[in-house]
Amino acid sequence: MHDTVWFEIQGLPAVSIASSEFAEAAEVQRKALGMEGARYLLVDHPIQDANDEEMRQKAREVFESVVTALTA
């Protein structure tokens, strides 16, 4: 979330992507960083033990949402 806020402050659209396990942490971070509108997307948890194909599938599942978040 820190990087997303930094990029947004620079005027560059950004979106964080995190595991669904970190939804609450994302909310807390964006509020603590003073940017409650910072965008983030969640992928299904867990990711740490996902193989390459599983990670590609997770990326495919959020791709359109990432594009929308960056261009809306």
Rank of each mutant, 00 (worst) to 15 (best):
V28F: 00
F63Y: 13
D44C: 09
Y40I: 12
L33N: 03
I47M: 10
E64I: 05
A32Q: 15
S65P: 05
V15R: 00
A50D: 13
R30T: 04
T4D: 12
M55T: 01
E61K: 11
K58D: 02
E53Y: 04
V5G: 01
A14R: 01
A23T: 12
D44N: 08
W6S: 15
E36H: 14
S20V: 11
D52S: 01
V15F: 00
K31D: 14
V15L: 01
F63E: 15
A50R: 13
Y40M: 10
I9W: 15
H45K: 00
I9N: 14
A59S: 02
L41M: 03
A32G: 12
S16R: 11
A14E: 03
G34V: 08
Q10T: 06
E21M: 05
L12H: 15
R60V: 03
G37Y: 09
R60N: 00
R56D: 12
L41N: 05
L12V: 14
A14D: 06
A18H: 07
G37A: 05
A59N: 08
E64Y: 15
A25S: 12
I9T: 12
R30Y: 07
L33I: 03
Y40N: 08
R30K: 01
L33T: 15
N51Q: 11
S65Q: 09
Q29W: 10
R56W: 10
R56C: 05
